[in-house]
Computed example of a mutant assay.
Amino acid sequence: MLNELLLAFSLSGWFVDASNELTGYFKHMNVTQLGIVSACSVAFGFLCLKGQGIKR
């Protein structure tokens, strides 16, 4: 069964579906929602830059 699942899975098809879904979400967001997503992305980026220090 695992072999059939792996054969049916297409990475490029998954990426196209995921990007189309994200594009649809972003088209229906208002300015406030886009600002929240942007702020969270920036905060996550700074947390990633901090690295191992955040665990202390």
Rank of each mutant, 00 (worst) to 15 (best):
residue 13 G to H: 05
residue 1 M to R: 07
residue 53 G to C: 01
residue 27 K to G: 02
residue 26 F to G: 00
residue 50 K to S: 07
residue 28 H to V: 12
residue 36 I to G: 01
residue 4 E to N: 11
residue 5 L to N: 05
residue 49 L to G: 07
residue 3 N to Y: 06
residue 44 F to C: 07
residue 55 K to E: 15
residue 6 L to P: 00
residue 16 V to E: 15
residue 30 N to A: 02
residue 39 A to T: 01
residue 34 L to S: 12
residue 6 L to H: 05
residue 10 S to F: 07
residue 24 G to N: 14
residue 8 A to L: 02
residue 4 E to W: 02
residue 22 L to F: 13
residue 23 T to L: 14
residue 44 F to N: 09
residue 4 E to M: 09
residue 10 S to E: 14
residue 22 L to Y: 11
residue 42 V to M: 10
residue 1 M to S: 08
residue 38 S to I: 02
residue 47 L to D: 05
residue 52 Q to D: 14
residue 35 G to P: 00
residue 5 L to Y: 07
residue 26 F to R: 01
residue 5 L to Q: 11
residue 34 L to I: 04
residue 15 F to L: 14
residue 19 S to F: 10
residue 1 M to H: 09
residue 8 A to Y: 03
residue 32 T to L: 09
residue 30 N to F: 03
residue 11 L to T: 12
residue 28 H to W: 08
residue 8 A to H: 03
residue 15 F to Y: 10
residue 40 C to W: 00
residue 37 V to L: 12
residue 9 F to R: 10
residue 54 I to R: 13
residue 7 L to I: 06
residue 38 S to M: 07
residue 6 L to I: 03
residue 19 S to Q: 13
residue 49 L to V: 12
residue 46 F to M: 15
residue 15 F to S: 06
residue 48 C to P: 00
residue 32 T to S: 14
residue 3 N to E: 14
residue 40 C to K: 07
residue 41 S to L: 12
residue 5 L to D: 11
residue 39 A to V: 00
residue 22 L to V: 10
residue 25 Y to A: 05
residue 37 V to K: 10
residue 5 L to M: 13
residue 54 I to P: 00
residue 18 A to P: 00
residue 43 A to G: 01
residue 55 K to Q: 11
residue 16 V to T: 11
residue 42 V to W: 05
residue 40 C to I: 01
residue 30 N to D: 15
residue 17 D to K: 04
residue 41 S to K: 06
residue 24 G to W: 04
residue 8 A to S: 13
residue 47 L to C: 05
residue 24 G to H: 07
residue 35 G to Y: 01
residue 29 M to P: 08
residue 18 A to E: 00
residue 22 L to T: 12
residue 7 L to F: 04
residue 34 L to N: 11
residue 20 N to E: 12
residue 25 Y to W: 12
residue 37 V to P: 05
residue 15 F to A: 10
residue 27 K to A: 13
residue 35 G to V: 00
residue 28 H to G: 03
residue 8 A to K: 10
residue 33 Q to N: 07
residue 12 S to D: 15
residue 18 A to R: 15
residue 6 L to K: 12
residue 15 F to K: 15
residue 2 L to I: 06
residue 21 E to S: 13
residue 35 G to K: 08
residue 55 K to Y: 15
residue 38 S to P: 02
residue 16 V to F: 13
residue 13 G to W: 01
residue 8 A to G: 07
residue 4 E to S: 07
residue 37 V to N: 03
residue 37 V to H: 05
residue 41 S to E: 09
residue 26 F to V: 04
residue 21 E to Y: 12
residue 26 F to C: 02
residue 56 R to Q: 09
residue 56 R to E: 08
residue 24 G to M: 06
residue 22 L to A: 15
residue 20 N to S: 08
residue 6 L to S: 04
residue 51 G to V: 04
residue 9 F to Y: 15
residue 34 L to D: 03
residue 56 R to S: 11
residue 52 Q to G: 04
